[in-house]
Amino acid sequence: MKLIGVDELSDKSRQYFIIDTRRQQEYETGHIVGARVLPVDYWLKEGDEYGSTRGTKMVFEKDFISLLYKMGVSDATEIVVYDDNHGRGSARFWIVAQQYGIENVGILDGGWHNYVSNGLPVERGVCKYQPSGYPSQIRTREYIISLSDLLTQYPLLKIIDARSDEEWSGKDLHGNPRGGHLPGAIHLNWEELISHDTAHTFVDREEIVSKASALGLKRDDAIVVYCQAGVRAAFVAVALIYAGFENVKVYDGSMCEWSRDPSLQLEKEIMKILINDQEVEFAEPMTVSQAVRDFVVTGEEIIMHNGKYLSRENCDKCIIADGDKIDIIKFLAGG
């Protein structure tokens, strides 16, 4: 996996085939000179992101390949792909392209924003294609794993969850019917792999390796990354491949598919909350009002959340978290 610096694009000795994965409208408003547009949504998310229960959300191989060659990609083309969402769109493109044997793909490090902030030339308008011939031979590779293969190989795999802390814990359902994470999964929030400078480039190889090692991952582990719908997972997979991990795949159905099959287990963090100094366990995210339901008698009680007063309205809004301390003060007449 190659990361291409924005300065390398201006190297006249290389003829890059540049692909913009942003939306059509954004492309037409301004894009890198010579870029072709291929919005992620076109070939990634057919139908509703949350409504679909399909095992794979990828476009079919034949459609993807013919689309690329219609755009003018040929066997010898050196593709550079970019996005404006911190590398996620590009990573997704990279994974799908590898799966279908389009190997020569680099990612523009820092993407559109990094390019523009360097004052490099842009152009506007619609995309013009110059189709090339259909490739003689396609070698598909295994960068995507289906649900059935995932289940068969499960004990042998290191499963990585690329989502946010709230999605991982089950606090944020993200439109899914159930929350939590896959049994035995390891949490690696994709945002940990973007540098937090203004360019939003990938973090250094060394940093990716050290984060992965800290999570117990080894270079030759069979790794499967998932997220909600396979985009953030592609980002983490690409980062790991970039850092030298050899056997990394994306579970394309991700939580979107897994959470909708009631026979598949999810692990959730049990939240331990102190209510009036008594330990109470909760498995589901809920508001303070819901958590104190069994303790409240009149509804007039004063509710304190981690030592702070909560109005009744805020009790309905505030979501509990592990380690919270809730005190319910019921006043009895007499003074």
């Binding site: 304190m304 030592g307 702070k308 005190d327 003060i329 019921k330 009895l332 007449a333 007499g334």
Partner: peptide
Amino acid sequence: RKISDKFYVVGDFATDIRTGATP
């Protein structure tokens, strides 16, 4: 009951004058 550094409640949290407890 020390609820926070700035909130304390003292009492038996059981007896209520309104429901017949004698002060």
